[in-house]
Amino acid sequence: MLRLGGSVIGFESSGSSSASKGESVADTIRIVSSYADVCAIRHPKEGAALVASRHALIPVINAGDGGHQHPTQTLTDLMTIYNVKGRLDRLTIGFCGDLKFGRTVHSLISACVKYHGVSFILVSPRELKLPGYVREEIEAAGAPCAETDNLGETIADMDVLYMTRVQRERFFNEEDYVRLKDTYILNKQKLASARPDLAVMHPLPRVNEISTEIDRDPRALYFKQAEYGCYIRMALIKDLLKEARG
């Protein structure tokens, strides 16, 4: 927003917003609508952005609603894949890590099933498998999909590898988080059996699921991906403001 010449009204943290006092999302967005031209909402509850959009007088961007969806990250991801592969169809895309609560995974799969010839390899521990509603989208599209808990055995088949972090904030139980957080670590050894043109992506932040030793590998695209995120979000805000002003 700042790079577009606009200004930002925000909160330092959720603790300094009225939400922490128990204000509803509906009321918060009504107030924000009075002060801003466009709103990006990130909220821990799934569906919060949808509720906000129904009470807002301004465009609302879902910047992540709990473990549900993250559509602007998907725009970023699609832009990254297109720039490196030159296409969005006929790709084998691997998703690895927390596929249950990984909202960027859900949104990206929802987008990718619309492209012809895309197939999926889902790598996760049993407890963090893809939720049913995303799986149904894959089935409805008739896209080939393989599930495994072994990254090393499947990495060679992938055009894109989308790594995710096991997120502490999604777990009600600390023990489960600790048990699962280090299940997959992408390192030089695993990457050795991958295709030379594999695109390694990550929505960031990472913790230790991608070893820093591969940051300089030309297949590591996650920092470029973050850069594209800035451009695509600028484009989205500009487009929404143009639309809102007629």
């Binding site: 509803s24 999302v25 509906a26 909220h43 821990p44 509850k45 799934e46 569906g47 919060a48 949808l50 509720v51 609603d65 709990g66 473990g67 549900h68 009600f172």
Partner: peptide, 13 residues
């Protein structure tokens, strides 16, 4: 029934 759903905290929804 999803405790992570906005309906679990947003009364007017």
């Amino acid at each position: 029934k999803n405790p992570r759903c906005i309906t679990s905290i947003e009364q007017e929804v």
